[in-house]
Design a protein around this nucleic acid. Structure first.
Lengths: 231, 231
DNA sequence: CGAGAATTTGAAACTATTCAACGACTGTGG
DNA sequence: CCACAGTCGTTGAATAGTTTCAAATTCTCG
């Protein structure tokens, strides 16, 4: 089924574009490493490459003229970074954690999109998924209270972590992991101020739903309650 | 160029999918008419058809369990309505004005997407455009003040109307048109309450930027100032 | 003209922000 | 090893902006 399109399978998992592609069909493919906080691409620029996230978390950010910032998307392992068929990126990308990228040539990928049905369909599916995610977040930003927003974000991350890490040793209701975002970044994602995020985390802790240690480590004790708080 | 894909040109304009398609290649294509407020599709359902908007404005809405609503997108003439390759719609669609739809068979369109490069590419481009729009709105919902939000929406609509109507007789700085959304819908789109929208419109009127008559008619006197207020 | 809906306005209440300060953790240099 | 600076996270108090509640006004349409 995939014989015409080796991109469709990948070293990260079956959802990614790069990976198993034979080297002779993958000109200028390179791995890149970014440290937390490092800018990967700036808004308004056009890069000559796209990438698959191999590991780490990337934030997509929009910035207003006076400096206000909004994180409009999170890219995790196996996600696609870049904007094919456009003059410029509509938002900037920054490494939230240590990030490992598998980069490939823009022209090559755009040609592949034209010639390979699977690649094209995979990319379309993903774009539709991202659109759904963006709209879901619009609901959060437009309707939810601070408490619901923070609960939603913690829940979102808990679910992502549960599906990625192998930490299923303990009870399924209890989950321990490191938040990939700083308080500032959480605030920028949730449309809140950092102090508000802190206070709501404190409330979740007081309610016995989570446990934190003034840092990024977090333990979720009651996914059910968390889900209810997130609405 | 388009000989394999008559969908790529359209009666509405060159951006739409339906229209010039010969009838024998367009099984079960029908026009449908909706009145303001009418539900077109409900969230969670799957329809057996897609459509192109021929005229009018459609709102895409997400609803929370307790009834809070957020408009997550606006569909205008020549826009595409539907979600190919998915089990269910992720949001509901409702007619904001009188809406005229050109509906075509789901299976047929999905097959066309597989077989016709132009259709597929057109659809991908549009999905990417919608994603950009959704993220732009996330910036509004997450960062902007009530004043900036209302200014942004009026500006957005003024630009859309300018490109669609033939009202270029008067000075380019002055623009008169009907808002396609009620105050309630504007509030749902902006993540505000209806009273807040009213008060901000009042302020725009007091600042001499717009003129309104307690209804949907609006005159924009100073696009420049409006743009500055929207940031 | 009159009924009902949509819009506008006012005042009080509340949520989240702002401003300010403190505590915890990290890495550097003495 | 400890003192120090710097960053990040937490907490408190006052403030501002938006919401909520209530009511008046305007518009629409039969």
């Amino acid at each position: 089924m995939l014989k015409h399109c080796p991109h469709a399978a990948c070293a990260v998992n079956s959802r990614a574009f790069c990976g198993t592609l034979a080297t002779e069909r993958r000109p200028r493919q390179v791995k890149r490493l970014y440290t937390p906080g490092q800018i990967i691409v700036s808004a308004g620029q056009q890069e000559d490459w796209f990438a698959t996230i191999l590991s780490g978390v990337v934030t997509l950010t929009k910035t207003m003229a006076d400096g206000r910032e909004q994180i409009v998307g999170l890219l995790l392992a196996s996600d696609f970074l870049g904007r094919p068929f456009a003059r410029a990126n509509s938002c900037g990308a920054q490494a939230a954690t240590t990030v490992e990228l598998c980069c490939f040539d823009r022209q090559y990928f755009e040609d592949l999109m034209r010639s390979c049905l699977e690649t094209r369909h995979l990319f379309l599916e993903r774009t539709l998924t991202e659109l759904d995610a963006a709209r879901e977040w619009m609901l959060l930003l437009g309707c939810k209270t601070a408490e619901e927003r923070v609960a939603s974000l913690v829940l979102f991350m808990a679910k992502r972590m549960r599906s990625q890490t192998a930490d299923r040793s303990s009870r399924p209701q209890t989950l321990h992991f490191d938040l990939p975002l700083s308080r500032t970044q959480m605030a920028e994602y949730l449309g809140l101020r950092i102090e508000t995020v802190c206070r709501q985390i404190k409330r979740l802790r007081a309610a016995g739903i989570i446990e934190t240690n003034n840092g990024r480590a977090i333990t979720v004790h009651d996914m059910g309650k968390l889900e209810r708080m997130a609405e």
